[in-house]
């Protein structure tokens, strides 16, 4: 078997007030694979992403990417040094920076000319060249979404984490943005973990789907397998 890009092993995480949100979560993601995590709200999906990103520190377990330990019993790499992209629910664009400023934010230590070039390339690839000098509040929901993705992708991460990336969009924009995101991810050969509670989103973007419940991954299978099952029981909540 090929070595996975990301391997999460036996993660445990509890909030200060006790209840365990992750209770031994394990999952793997291959190079350029899109894994969708589904599950009821409160099952720990978002916390799993935050632990992989390093925004939360799990009490036990390990996160390894491309053979390097990001989190284990001895070491903890801070989020800013992990080289992982994150698209937040609600996007968290910087309201005081333009589209250009938002995208350039993460490009540290490059000469100015190269920085400008990278930003320009990225703007072109997500089709936002004309909006480069706008502020986030002057953009539509779909455009904001693309800025958030471009902002992460410009750093060329091996792995993207996306928390409910389509949830704030209306149905039409939603399917457009979904197609667009997949095109960008595939073009860059970027692996991704996408958290959603929407089955349709899951079908459209996933290579594999992981079902999560009570802080554990209960099942991982190719999207097609879930699809046949879900069409048989169309009304069951994910």
């Amino acid at each position: 078997m090929i070595k996975p890009l990301l391997s999460v092993h036996d993660l445990h995480f509890a909030h200060v007030r006790g209840q365990e949100v992750l209770a031994g979560t394990s999952v793997e993601v291959q190079e350029a694979e899109v894994l969708v995590v589904v599950g009821p709200s409160g099952c720990g999906k978002s916390t799993l992403l935050r632990c992989i990103a390093g925004l939360e520190k799990p009490s036990r377990g390990s996160v390894t990417m491309a053979g390097n330990a990001l989190t284990d019993a001895r070491s903890f790499i801070p989020p800013e040094a992990r080289g992982i992209g994150f698209v937040f629910q609600g996007l968290a664009l910087f309201p005081h920076l333009t589209v250009k400023g938002n995208i350039a934010f993460g490009l540290n230590g490059l000469p100015a000319s190269e920085r400008t070039q990278r930003v320009r390339d990225e703007l072109r690839s997500v089709g936002l060249v004309d909006l480069a000098d706008r502020y986030p509040h002057e953009l539509s929901g779909g455009q904001q979404q693309r800025v958030a993705i471009a902002r992460s992708l410009v750093r060329r991460p091996k792995l993207m984490l996306m928390d409910e990336p389509f949830s704030d969009l209306d149905p039409k924009t939603r399917s457009e943005v979904r197609t667009e995101v997949m095109r960008i991810l595939r073009a860059n050969k970027t692996a991704a973990i996408i958290v959603t509670h929407d089955r349709e989103d899951a079908f459209h973007v996933a290579d594999r789907i992981a079902e999560m419940d009570h802080g554990r991954i209960v099942r991982v299978a190719p999207a097609s397998e879930f699809r046949s099952e879900w069409t048989q029981h169309p009304f069951q909540e994910v």
Binding site: A53, G54, L55, P78, P79, E80, A81, I84, G85, F86, F88, G90, A92, L93, F94, F105, G106, N108, R151, S152, R155
Partner: peptide
Amino acid sequence: SPHLDAARMLGGGAWK
């Protein structure tokens, strides 16, 4: 908090 988290994920250290 979401903006600070986003800045971290974009490689921003404490000063930045």
